[in-house]
Amino acid sequence: MSEKKTKRRDFLFTATTAVGAVGAAAVVWPMIDQMNPDASVKALASTEVDVSSLTPGNTLTVLWRGKPVFIRRRTQEEIEEARSVKMEDLIHPEKDEDRAKNPEWLVMLGVCTHLGCVPLNDKGDYNGWFCPCHGSHYDTSGRIRKGPAPWNMEVPKYEFVDANTIKIG
């Protein structure tokens, strides 16, 4: 068999199959990609929130890209509790200093990293959030402490436009 010479026909078979495969892929890709977020969905990339009415110990929930965002004005005790936790006690170690640049304000996606439910405020074993779906407990920094969720609640890109306005996205 090893002596079998490559024939002109073998080349034609290979070349035809290769061109056919490229052609099929070129047709399939638009069919797949049409399901990805479209231009109008992507256009809603940022939202501005007035937080002047928020007093310490309260949470504002706003919708950004179809998902709830928690804006929590934390009390001094909550900040201290979040900052005193040892890194080795965390499932997904992140410093509170990195999650809340301005310690009074915690901004994060109100989406449980397990299967996407909205956790409940001021609930759970760690005084933070509790997800009613499958029982994940988050602390006052929104970090996962107990339950099936693998990560801390995500901190989106945000900035203070002025003292009373947060721009998310």
Partner: peptide, 24 residues
Amino acid sequence: NLFSAIPLVGEGIVTWLWGGYSVD
């Protein structure tokens, strides 16, 4: 969100299934 459990590509698959950043 079950699909988000897939390593690396999970989040991309979920966004693709949704056609956005949440069920909509």
